[in-house]
Amino acid sequence: MELSSEVNMMGTELGNYKLCVSARSTDKEILKKAQDGGIVTQLFAYALEEGIIDGAIVSGPGDEPWRPRPFVATSVEELMKSRGTRYNISPNVSFIKEATRSYGLDRIGIVGTPCQMQAVRKGQLYPAGLRDVPDKIALAIGIFCMENFPYQSIKQLVEDHAAMKLESVKKMEIGKGKFWVYGERGQVVQLPLKVTHKYEQPGCHVCLDYVANLADVSTGSVGSPDGWSTVFVRTKKGDDIWTKAIAAGCFETKSIEQVKPGLELVSKLANEKITKNQKTVEERAKFGVNKALRNPYLSPK
């Protein structure tokens, strides 16, 4: 238990970072369909054009409406197809080895939720089945995440609770304490989060990271005004790329101190998530009668 409570210490909920700003892409095309400030798409597009990455593992439209499917984008055109958030599982890490094989990438970009960033870093330090992958991760972009959903949950939330057909949904969003569904014809439905809770992916309830502490750069909407994103620059690699991208005029930025609601809200939500899930982890230890559910933060046993 010691180890996991360490991350729960107040002040570490945002992870290590060198820089935190509010930012937005300067590319209107990207912003048209981006979820927030288009940080992910813009940064990958810049890294691709500069040869910092050879391709990026992103999540794009799948076989059914709003069902994501990971793919390897090697052009800006392809990247454009991945804009926007699909609130259900996209196993992006499943491509991390193939990207170095039949795609021939030497410098991989990958985007993912905090847990997927954890998977990437574990893969670099303990590559049990990821031969020759560890030194090829050139840019790992993390997106903030409170929880994720199975596809069926999204279907039921949209089709039952919000009374809309999935294919006619333009955008979904979680923010300001609500689950928002925007229709193609201008309808807007908001659902209180207490409705969505039961639909969450169970694995998310032991998740102890909100703002992708292990990414090179992590981003999300929380903390910044609509259409803008909060950005943490965390590692040397991230710092290097971010600095160059700023110099190249890829982003408009505002100091995080100057925007509302600002970092305070990010911290608050991060702490709420971690505290709640830490409790779940602890309760799992006495879930049965003298029988515990597994705690991955203690041991693989």
């Binding site: 890490v93 499943s94 991390i96 939720t113 847990c115 990821l130 694995g203 032991v206």
Partner: peptide
């Protein structure tokens, strides 16, 4: 030890590793 234990979050590492 992962799904049955309510721990899987669908990252895809397992598929990549196999």
């Amino acid at each position: 030890d992962v799904i049955n234990q309510g721990l899987c979050m669908g990252c895809g590492s397992c598929a990549a590793a196999c």
